[in-house]
Design a protein around this nucleic acid. Structure first.
Lengths: 217, 217
DNA sequence: TACAAAGTTGACGAAGCGTCATGAATTTGT
DNA sequence: ACAAATTCATGACGCTTCGTCAACTTTGTA
């Protein structure tokens, strides 16, 4: 009889298998992408890993690219609550930046380990990298956070959009390089990124000495 | 008769048409990618824009992806001499960073305008972004430059790899956002990126004031 | 000029694509 | 409780693109 809920979701069997099928396709796609890579993957490769028929795929996604985006979207969605926590707990600009980087690098490390466990050859991770609407939402969220934290700490930012872009650029690139170093050092990456974003490269360098002895807390 | 040169390149007609064909394919691919996008492009779309036959394509490239990489590689190759000049003329850390960012942002703007002129819908630029060997070369070049400039100015860098990664991340993201603002402000982006990398976000903020009055020279 | 080497051509079989008529399972209406 | 209506899975089909290859043309060598 299918009871309609507030959200418009029905509890009938129809709706349940629909959700299950979607998830099955996404899970299968994850596996196959990890195993043989996005380019080599065909839609039939994906559907073969489920108990569905070829045509059914097209009831859920228009193309391979759309599945990919949906997976990236899932990843991004899982990151947002972490950012939410960071926002709620930060009491200063420094704290926000530091905690946000830590959250991202931890998340990245976890995602990477999961992908490797799933049989990804090496670092073929579908990350929080693709240009999805969800990613744009994160960008705006961070920008607004920065503005807000700056405002409450009586700071004026010159250009919050550029600052956000830079913060994200640093996160992406340092994140990649962090993963290449085994074991991935989340704290080290966090400290570096935070110091750089706040105080710049000069704070990470020492003048007139042979060995570096920077402090960044 | 084909005179063999030092480099193993022959001056015969064979070698000339070979180079010409390769360029023809690359040029055609550029056009088609710009017009209809990478995904929609088929190898036959590309070859149709030349006076070659389908089979000939495979004498030059293994796949559409390989053409793409070759184009990205060309872009990257064109950027390297600019970086060379920057390296030669910089006398301080600050100067190197500033000039390098200016070179990159100018290059990016020029590339973008060229792509738009070629009929790219909007910002579908094949940039200095892809993970090619040539890009890795640039990365190493910048890292070594940073180390070198730091050494001659008696500075110790904590982690030149991370610093390079961060510098490139900032360039990429700010570059993207710069292009979205019309007209693209190369000097503004350069100033922002340079100040951030050297002195950090704090240098771009003002404390206890309403309107920002940052100085970054 | 004759022969060898290199390269081009386009037709061909294979592979993957997206669609759609069919039928089964679920929901709705009475 | 049953029938009508709706939703959706199925897999075969026609179509597009793929990469290859035997035949042919052009270039280089002697």
């Amino acid at each position: 009889m299918a009871i309609a809920t507030k959200t418009g979701v029905t509890s009938g069997k129809r709706a349940r298998t629909k959700a299950a099928n979607r998830q099955a396709i996404l899970a299968a796609a994850r596996q196959v992408f990890a195993r043989i890579g996005f380019d080599a993957t065909t839609i039939r490769d994906i559907i073969r890993e489920t108990d569905l028929a070829a045509g059914t795929f097209y009831n859920y996604f228009r193309s391979k690219e759309e599945v990919f985006e949906a997976i990236a979207d899932q990843s991004t969605r899982r990151f947002r609550p972490l950012l939410q926590t960071v926002r709620e707990q930060a009491t200063s600009f420094e704290e926000y930046i530091s905690a946000a980087y830590r959250a991202y690098f931890s998340f990245l490390k976890a995602q990477n380990e999961e992908a490797v466990r799933d049989g990804a050859p090496h670092m073929a991770l579908i990350g929080v990298r693709v240009d999805t609407p969800e990613m744009h939402a994160i960008f705006d969220e961070i920008r607004i956070d920065l503005e807000e934290v700056a405002r409450t700490t009586n700071i004026s930012l010159e250009d919050s959009e550029f600052l956000t872009a830079a913060a994200i650029g640093i996160a992406r690139e340092i994140g990649d390089h962090m993963l290449k170093r085994r074991p991935a050092d989340v704290e080290g990456a966090t400290r570096f990124a935070t110091t750089l974003l706040l105080d710049g490269g000069k704070a990470l360098a020492t003048y007139g000495e042979k060995d570096p002895a920077p402090s960044a807390h």
